[in-house]
Design a protein around this nucleic acid. Structure first.
Lengths: 240, 240
DNA sequence: CGATCGATTGAGCCCTCTCAAGAGAGGTGG
DNA sequence: CCACCTCTCTTGAGAGGGCTCAATCGATCG
């Protein structure tokens, strides 16, 4: 609950274009909080009491349907804003946010959002950029689900995760947080069984190396080619 | 290209919370333009020169993949804002906007957006609400595509269109603009053949009445039940 | 009145899901 | 430190929902 060191967060997109003083004033209203692995930051349907910036760790946002199926909406990397329900006119969180790592967040009371944006209009334009990017990504996902097969979708999903949260390791790029087959399935609209079969296949071809909640991309470029390949493309039709 | 009558557009969400004077000042920068049925308001990839409010008619926003498939991103109803690429940090339009009806739009140069938001910060917060709602809807779509079968998805899509752009007719609610099987397919991630089969089935059951680019929901409530029904749900398992 | 565009419908296939077991890894408590 | 338990992952077999391919019909428009 101590005050936050400005130097650690001043560069974040949410605070682009603020002077040190302005930034300090905004930061004074935040508190820092820690969430242990697998604990919820907030729950879907709960009143949207706060909005957040992730300082360290990784957070998964997922929606649960009335019938109990879960869909992963996104993974939040450090520096990103999340839980901005109030800013987009929602009284309640539309998804559940869970720390997949031990994570540290900055939290502002939603109640102070209106006053903050009034005093610092750039907060609104910065948030608009953030939400706009999320919209873009979600549209990309809809397009993929509409036009691509499961294997291509999984490849795209892993490549995006690697770009956002990849860590260079000896034999490639490792996704820098625990992620299960089930998680990947819920990101791509398929089942954990199909994801498991796909990863097993890739492993045999040397494209990835994976294990329990752990995925390393050994050949990102080959995966990218695979992601862009339309399935019936390997054998060009022969003109008789 | 005449100046616009404020009384016709003052109530729109984009302008919520503005005085008549402020509103007039914003409106002076807009021009009105008409687009005939099937003409593009702007094209995907084109420089984002303007942003728009739809006054009359209907506009379809769709994305084209590198391989040529099209996916319908949304339908714009009158009063709604679209083409706000600049506001969310894009230099180019991420989709193509096509008038599906004869349509009339208000257009502002994207270049004036920064100055307008600086002078009228509420523009940013109003746009944030709009973009936030789009994000919500797109997430709903991802969840549906991940968890529901085609028939349920089509039912949900038509119910949403009817709610947004429905017109009461003698035998039900008609979707108030020309919409083909192909369009519905591109909204739900399926093929026009499957949509055709589904609508034929519904027609026989008296749920809809449809024809060339025309769909009437005769029994919205029954459709809603169908949309929420999980396929294997009809026969409760018998305990031996 | 011909031409073009949208809708319908059949046949067959295949990608992916469902159902079912089982094995391995990791954590925990005695 | 070992036994046990739980969670994750793997893999096979079979079924089916929806796609592809193909042909025809009907309606709207110039």
């Amino acid at each position: 609950m101590a005050t936050v060191d400005p130097s650690l967060v001043a560069h974040l997109p949410l605070f682009a274009g603020f002077s040190a003083d302005e930034f300090g004033e905004i930061l004074r209203e935040a508190r820092s909080a820690r969430f242990a692995k697998n604990n919820a930051v907030f729950q879907q349907g709960e009143e949207a009491h706060s909005f957040y910036v992730l300082q360290h760790g990784h957070v998964r946002a997922s929606k649960t349907t009335p019938t109990g199926e879960q869909v992963v909406v996104r993974y939040v990397a450090s520096g990103e804003t999340f839980g901005v329900a109030m800013a987009i006119g929602l009284q309640r969180y539309p998804a559940t946010a869970t720390a997949v790592d031990d994570s540290v967040v900055l939290a502002w009371p939603s109640a102070s959002w209106p006053r903050l944006v009034e005093k610092f209009p750039a907060l609104a334009t910065n948030t608009l950029q953030t939400v706009g990017s999320l919209l873009q990504e979600t549209h990309t996902r809809v397009v993929e689900m509409s036009t691509q097969q499961v294997e291509q979708r999984v490849a795209h999903a892993l490549l995006r995760l690697a770009k956002q949260s990849g860590r260079k390791v000896e034999h490639g790029v490792e996704i820098d947080f625990p992620i299960s087959r089930q998680d990947v399935a819920q990101m791509t609209g398929t089942t954990l069984h199909t994801v498991s079969r796909i990863l097993s296949g890739w492993e045999q071809r040397g494209l990835v190396e994976s294990g329990r909640q752990r995925i390393v991309l050994r050949e990102p470029h080959k995966l990218f080619v695979l992601a862009e390949t339309v399935p019936g493309d390997s054998e060009p039709p022969v003109k008789p």
